[in-house]
Amino acid sequence: MSPVVADVVDPSTVHGVHGADGVSWWKCLARRNDLFGSWEAVEWAALPPGGLSGEHVHTRTEELYFILTGSGVMLLDGREHPVRAGDLVVNGLGTRHGLLNTGAERLTWLVIEVVGPLTATVYSEHQEHVENGGPR
């Protein structure tokens, strides 16, 4: 496996992320096939001032949000939590979460998405099956 190298140049512009109005930016830096272990993805995301990543729930993965720049409010299961650059937020399996940029500058964060135990087991069993000559 070769090293994975990525950057945040030319991210995708996303309109209405997770049902919210407005625009955001997103870029996948690495996906499951490029990673070892129970990793699903490593992503970069950004919101303009006043921007919102709408509330949503993951049933297969949990996400770690590492706030890189700016400040905002993390919505976790109906409760608001102020966040700023340097904060780490854990969005566990089944947690309803969203992020609002309340600051005057762009809010950027790194998303580290990890599969839950049941999904990790399925992936592992599938990989074992493939390695033993089974169909993909």
Rank of each mutant, 00 (worst) to 15 (best):
S53A: 13
M74Y: 07
E43Y: 09
E43I: 02
R79P: 03
G86E: 11
V23R: 03
S24V: 01
L29Y: 06
L100P: 00
L68H: 07
V57C: 11
T102S: 12
G70E: 02
H97T: 03
P82R: 12
E105Y: 12
N91A: 11
R32N: 13
R79H: 12
W39C: 05
E62Q: 09
G54F: 04
V83G: 00
N33C: 07
T61Q: 05
K27D: 02
G72H: 00
T61Y: 06
G98C: 04
A85G: 11
L76Q: 10
L88N: 06
L35N: 06
V57N: 03
H81D: 07
A20W: 01
N33P: 02
G19C: 10
H56M: 01
E55I: 03
G70I: 01
V73Y: 10
E63S: 08
G37M: 09
G50Y: 09
A45K: 01
R79F: 05
E105Q: 15
L76M: 14
S71I: 10
C28L: 07
A41V: 03
L35Q: 11
L99Q: 01
H56I: 00
G98I: 00
G19T: 13
S71D: 12
W26D: 02
R96L: 11
E55H: 05
S24E: 08
R84K: 15
H58T: 06
G86H: 12
A46C: 07
H56F: 02
G86A: 06
E40F: 04
V42S: 04
L88T: 14
H97R: 09
G94I: 08
G98D: 05
G22K: 03
L88H: 05
P48E: 06
V90P: 02
E43F: 03
L29G: 01
L35P: 01
T59L: 13
G94V: 04
E63Q: 13
M74T: 02
E63M: 02
L75Q: 13
G19H: 13
G92Q: 13
G51L: 00
N91S: 14
E80F: 12
D34I: 05
D34N: 15
S53P: 04
E40L: 03
H56K: 03
V42F: 06
A20R: 00
T102A: 04
L64S: 02
T69W: 07
P48C: 06
V23Y: 01
W44Y: 15
A30W: 08
I67T: 01
V89I: 14
V73F: 08
L64H: 08
A85Q: 08
T61H: 11
G19N: 14
H58I: 03
G54D: 06
A30H: 04
L68W: 08
F66M: 09
L100E: 02
R84I: 13
V90N: 03
A30K: 10
G92K: 10
P82F: 09
W26N: 05
A104Y: 11
A85C: 11
V83Y: 00
V73T: 13
V23F: 05
S53E: 12
N33T: 14
G86I: 04
S71K: 09
C28G: 14
T95W: 01
N101A: 13
E40G: 08
G51Y: 00
G50C: 14
D77I: 15
E55Q: 14
